Computed example of a mutant assay.
Amino acid sequence: MVARAPKPHLRPFVQVLWASDGTAAEGHPASEREYMLPTGAMHLVFCLGRPLRLYDDLHDPTGHTVGHALVGGARSTFYVRDVSRPSRSVGAQFQPGAAELLLGVPASALSGRHTRLEDLWGRVALDYREQLLEARSPEVALDRFESLLTARLAQGRALHPCVAGALELFADTADVRAVVDASGYSHRRFIALFREAVGLTPKVFCRIQRFQRALAWVASAPDASWADLALRAGYADQAHFNRDFREFSGISPGIYRELAPVSRQHVPIPRTSSR
C-alpha cells in the first residue's frame, strides 16, 4: 500500500491518496471480511482487479457486487466488505464539503451508500479506469489519479462560506448551536447547507469526528483505561463513549482492541464470526 498527501492545489479538496498493488492481502490474514468504520468523509475508489463486494450484514452468506469504479458517500455507521483476496486499487478520501466540486453532485445525494462512478460521469469513468490499469506501479497510478482529479475539479467554484466556516469551527468545538449563531443563518438553512455539502448533519458529523478522536487515542495509548480514553476524546462519561462506539462500529471498544486492526478504520472480522 502506498499513501501520500495530494499536491498543494488539491489539498483543500483531498485528504489523502492511496494505491494498493494487490501483492498482499487487504485485511487481516485470519479474516475474509472487515468492518469499515465511518470517517465523516467521502471517498472515490477505482478497483483495478476484482470489483468491490459488500455484505448486508455479518451473516449475509453471499453479499453483492458494487462495481469497479465507485463513490463511497459519507455515512454514520459501518459497512462490511470482502477482503478474502488481494486486489489492486487506487483511491482518495475527500475533504468534507469537496464532493460537489470534484464529482459534480451534492454530498447529500450520495450519503450512506456506494454509487457507481459511471452513474455520475458516464462512460468516461470506465475510460479513466483503463488509464489507471495501464500504470506500471502504484506511484504512477497515483500520479495519473491525481491528474484525473485535477481535471475534474470544478473551476471557479468554492465551498459555501457558511459551510467552510463551520468546518473550521468544528475542528475545535462540537457546539452546533454556537456555530449556527456565528454563521448568521437560520438553524434550518444552516443544516440544509451543511448536509448538502458534507453529506451528514452537523450533529452527526461532530459525533463521528469525536469517535475518530477516540480511535486515534486507542491506537496511541493501548494500555489506557476506557474511562480515560473517553474523557480524552471529549465524551462526558464512559457510558456515552460505549454507546457511540457500538453505534458507529458495530462492536464494543473491548472487542475492537482485541481485534487489533492495523488500520483503525479497517477492522478484521474473524472467519468464525462471518459464518
Rank of each mutant, 00 (worst) to 15 (best):
Q209D: 06
S108G: 06
P138V: 10
A171L: 06
Q212H: 08
C47S: 15
R85E: 15
A30K: 10
P38H: 10
H266R: 14
A141P: 03
G63I: 03
A24H: 12
E139D: 14
Y79H: 13
R157C: 00
L54F: 07
P96Y: 08
F94I: 03
L259C: 02
R275T: 14
D228N: 10
D143L: 09
V176I: 11
Q131I: 12
Q155I: 06
L193C: 07
R33G: 04
V140W: 09
V2W: 07
G184A: 09
T201Q: 11
R271W: 11
Y55S: 02
C206D: 09
V105Q: 13
I251D: 02
Q209S: 08
L37T: 09
P161F: 01
R177T: 14
R188M: 07
A230W: 04
R243S: 14
H187Q: 15
S89F: 12
R188S: 12
L193G: 05
R232S: 11
V2L: 14
A230C: 11
P29W: 11
D119K: 13
T173S: 12
A219H: 13
S84E: 08
R257G: 06
H9G: 11
R157I: 00
F205C: 06
N242A: 15
L48C: 06
R129L: 11
A107M: 06
F194S: 01
F245M: 10
G250W: 00
E32C: 05
R33W: 02
S220Q: 14
Y128M: 13
F94Q: 03
V16D: 04
P51V: 10
S225E: 15
I251L: 11
L153E: 06
P270V: 13
G49D: 14
P202Y: 03
R81C: 09
A69W: 06
H266S: 10
H266T: 03
V262T: 14
A164D: 09
D181M: 13
V179C: 01
W217D: 12
S111P: 00
R4P: 01
S263H: 15
H160Y: 00
F13L: 13
P61T: 05
D21I: 10
V105P: 03
P106L: 11
A197W: 01
E134R: 15
E26I: 13
T23D: 13
V90N: 01
T115I: 10
P268R: 08
P8Q: 15
A197M: 02
L132D: 01
R53L: 07
L103Y: 03
E130F: 09
A260E: 14
V180Y: 00
A154G: 04
Q93F: 12
L153C: 07
F78I: 07
C206H: 02
Q212Y: 01
Q95A: 15
T65R: 10
D244H: 15
G97H: 05
F46R: 00
S274V: 04
E34F: 05
K203Y: 12
D21L: 12
G22N: 11
V71N: 06
P6N: 12
L37I: 09
A3D: 03
G27W: 04
P253G: 08
H160V: 01
L120C: 05
G156A: 05
R136V: 11
